Simulated scan of single mutants.
Amino acid sequence: MQVWRGAGEVPADLGPTVATLGIFDGVHRGHQVVLAATVAEAEAAGLTSVAVTFDPHPATVHRPEEPFVLISSLTDRLERLAGTGLDAVLVLDYTLEFARATPEEFVRRYLVELLHAHVVVVGEDVRFGRANTGDRRTMAELGRRLGFGVEIIEDIAHPGTGRRWSSTWVRELLAEGDVAGAAHVLGRPHRVRGVVVHGAKRGRELGYPTANLHADDLGVVPADGVYAGWLIRPEHAPHDGTSKRLPAAVSVGTNPTFHGVERTVEAYVLGRTDLDLYGEEVVVELVERLRPMVAFDGIPALLDQMADDVVRSAQILGVPAPQVPGPQVPAPPAAAPRAADRR
């Protein structure tokens, strides 16, 4: 899949296309229906399929004072878009100046003149142009006047609940820690991506060394708790025999046992104490929540629970359970009122 970062990268000799547009945050099942229709329409007509998306998210441009975190980074969004079979994605820089374009100005400049759209495929909730004043009826009218076809894809609801697939639903589920539910809406496990940084190395002292990621810049991080998941090394060449995809037990929280205040994501690769991941960008996929954060009476009880977490993670992920490490148990901080379940 080609990625054009701005109008200037679109080939001058680009022929007719079938185009769609949207933020596609998370590329959930609803998005996938629209994207599949775009690809199918293009293949049937022998044309190029193109998705137009925007970066940064409009919410961060129009309301910078309000916190907003994307479900998936642009890198992951593009990876998921590539998996739909699209030929190309055009990433447009979303600015206040860009947002001033009327619906017709946007469609004429980008879909007609730049992408030579023969057909535009959109979901029934599409919005575009200044103040989101363009909708599906606007697109149909512009298609009649400017000479392209328009295919409207009606929302497809979840068969059990009747709720439409949406990024809002994914955010709600992640806020509850329901990563399995979020995976059902997304069509694959939710993931966060970040660079492994040095921590206090307390996990290593306990016999469970973890890859530590600061939770501030990872995307939507689910509720505090312990999860079964996978640690993925996207740029890793497995010449040393180490897989790119490693089973892990993942802890999300603030490390209250040792008076932690910074929220982190920590992934312990099952049975591995030899990995050096510092400075490496990794992806953590969250498959199922094992438990919330709870307080223990002491570190021995914590270690018993961590050993159980490892065994349950292995069962959920379908891998052999590793031998439980024999840790050097450190003394807890004198001022700690209770020990909690964090490395």
Results as ranks from 00 to 15, higher is better:
Ala307Tyr: 11
Arg100Gly: 06
Leu96Asp: 03
Gly30Cys: 10
Ala101Lys: 11
Arg343Ile: 08
Arg263Met: 10
Ala228Met: 03
Val121Asp: 03
Pro330Ala: 00
Ser73Arg: 11
Ala183Asn: 04
Pro332Cys: 10
Gly149Tyr: 07
Arg77Gln: 12
Pro332Met: 04
Glu105Lys: 12
Thr17Pro: 01
Ser251Lys: 15
Val121Cys: 02
Ala19Asn: 03
Gln315Lys: 13
Ala40Pro: 08
Leu78Lys: 03
Val112Gly: 11
Asp178Thr: 11
Arg145Asp: 13
Asp341Ser: 14
Tyr94Val: 05
Val33Asn: 01
Ala301Trp: 14
Gly279Thr: 00
Arg164Pro: 10
Gly253Gln: 07
Ala101Tyr: 10
Ala131Arg: 15
Glu9Ala: 13
Thr168Leu: 00
Glu104Tyr: 09
Thr95Arg: 06
Arg127Glu: 03
Gly229Lys: 04
Leu277Glu: 01
Asp178Leu: 01
Thr48Val: 12
Asp240Arg: 09
Ala19Ser: 14
Val252Thr: 05
Ala157Tyr: 02
Val119Gly: 07
His184Asn: 12
Pro292Asn: 03
Gly134Leu: 11
Ala59Leu: 15
Ala248Cys: 03
Leu173Arg: 13
Ala42Tyr: 07
Pro337Lys: 13
Glu9Val: 09
Ala334Val: 13
Glu79Trp: 08
Thr257Trp: 02
Gly26Lys: 15
Ala140Cys: 14
Leu275Asn: 01
Val192Lys: 11
Val126Lys: 07
Leu173Trp: 01
Ala40Gln: 10
Ala211Arg: 03
Pro327Glu: 03
Arg163Tyr: 11
Ala336Met: 06
Val221Ser: 01
Ala223Thr: 04
Ala42Arg: 06
Glu105His: 11
Val265Arg: 08
Ala7Tyr: 08
Val170Gly: 00
Ala211Tyr: 05
Glu104Asp: 13
Gly162Arg: 06
Ala331Trp: 15
Ala7Gln: 15
Gln2Gly: 11
Ser167Gly: 02
Glu9Gln: 12
His31Ala: 07
Val27Trp: 10
Glu280Ala: 08
Thr38Cys: 06
Glu266Pro: 07
Glu65Ile: 12
Pro67Lys: 08
Leu290Gln: 05
Glu176Leu: 15
Ala157Asp: 00
Gly6Gln: 00
Thr17Cys: 09
Thr168Ile: 09
Tyr94Arg: 02
Val69Cys: 14
Phe258His: 13
Arg5Ser: 02
His158Ser: 10
Leu174Asp: 09
Met306Asn: 14
Ala314Lys: 04
Leu218Phe: 11
Phe68Gln: 00
Ala12Glu: 15
Arg188Thr: 00
